Simulated scan of single mutants.
Amino acid sequence: MRSDRHTASPALKIAAIGGLLFLHLPILLIFAYAFTTEEKSYQWPPPGFTLKWFGVAWERPDVWQALTLSLKVGAIATAIALVLGTLAAAAVSRSKFFGREAISLLVILPIALPGIITGIALRSAFSILDIPFSMWTIILGHATFCVVVVYNNAVARFRRTSGSLIEASYDLGADGFQTFRHVILPNIATALLAGGMLAFALSFDEVIVTTFTGGQQSTLPIWMLEELIRPRQRPVTNVVAMIVVLATFLPILAAYYLTRDGDQIAGGGK
């Protein structure tokens, strides 16, 4: 039996490898510079390798403060996004009303706008309302685009979930909460989990919106940006960059595996 798949040409393979190297080689350089013995400049190849900077980063309280703030902001912003994004997705996908498409566009608009526009708008709003800049203003800023990520995942899964399952649940005597718990939630759970992981990853490494909404607060990416202008202990910044890469890569990888078989939904048919 002949296979429908064609073997890629050598030129196409070389182009694919070149593209991957272009995307990921700079990240590997960050990993290499995290182990360098040179303190104030970047040299290639590195003059030597050491684990010293991991200990230095571990002992610096400003790193821990920035990391703790990033984790808090990411967790709370993701929780807000899961609630609002799921409710918005349910309203848009399961109901028909005038202006539904316009509302859907308004929900996804924040992630399409440049971050600097969102940051300026939020800073102006906080200033007009006389809201002091704090961790909560950062959370509100991050929630604006985290909601979009959860919404996109949830609305796609809602649309692939058969409405007959919900109707059957009501016919069998279940109320709205029981239907959501036993029918809807199991069908959208992986989409919500994937959306939450992606939202957390976006929040964890956000810089522009945080710059306008953070005041004197420094999340881990802001801390890295400030450290890059200092000539001392630059490898510490690369050590922290490794943490950021891992903290964002792992949720994205998990989200990919959770959603790659999203077409196989209970009641959704083929």
Rank of each mutant, 00 (worst) to 15 (best):
Y170M: 09
L225T: 13
E227F: 11
H142N: 14
F180M: 07
I108K: 06
G215W: 04
L21Y: 11
L185I: 02
P114F: 06
A266S: 09
E227N: 15
Y170N: 11
S162A: 03
Y256L: 13
L106P: 05
V207Q: 08
K72C: 08
Q43L: 15
F54P: 01
G262A: 14
F158C: 07
V107S: 05
F212D: 03
A81P: 07
G19I: 04
V207T: 14
I188A: 08
A57M: 04
Y33R: 05
T50Y: 05
I139E: 03
T161P: 04
P26E: 06
F97C: 13
A66R: 01
P110E: 07
A247R: 10
N187V: 07
E206Y: 06
V236G: 02
R100G: 03
L28C: 12
L23Y: 04
G269A: 07
D62T: 00
L172D: 01
T68P: 00
R2F: 14
A201M: 06
R5F: 15
L193I: 14
Y151C: 09
D171F: 07
T211A: 14
F145L: 12
I30V: 15
V149N: 12
D130Q: 12
Q217G: 10
N238T: 12
I103Y: 10
I131Y: 02
Y151Q: 05
L165N: 00
L23V: 14
I116F: 12
A168T: 01
L129E: 08
I184F: 06
G115P: 14
V92R: 04
S162W: 01
G19M: 02
H142D: 07
R123A: 12
S9T: 13
P132M: 04
V83F: 12
Y42D: 08
A247C: 11
M224K: 03
L193C: 12
G74I: 06
I252V: 15
A143T: 13
A66Y: 02
A8T: 10
F249A: 15
A247Y: 06
I116T: 08
L21V: 14
W223N: 00
K40E: 10
I30Y: 11
T7G: 08
G99R: 03
F97V: 02
T211R: 14
N153C: 12
S164T: 13
A255K: 03
V239S: 02
R181L: 11
I76H: 09
F49T: 11
A88W: 08
A125G: 09
T36Y: 06
A121D: 00
A112Q: 15
G119F: 11
G176W: 09
A88H: 12
L122V: 01
Q217H: 13
I128G: 02
R234S: 09
T86A: 10
A247W: 01
A201F: 02
F180I: 04
I111N: 12
I27F: 13
E59H: 15
A75F: 14
N187P: 03
A143I: 05
G18D: 01
F31L: 14
R157L: 00
L113V: 00
P251K: 01
R181Q: 09
Y33S: 03
S93H: 05
K52M: 14
A81V: 05
G55K: 04
Q178N: 10
N153H: 12
T68V: 00
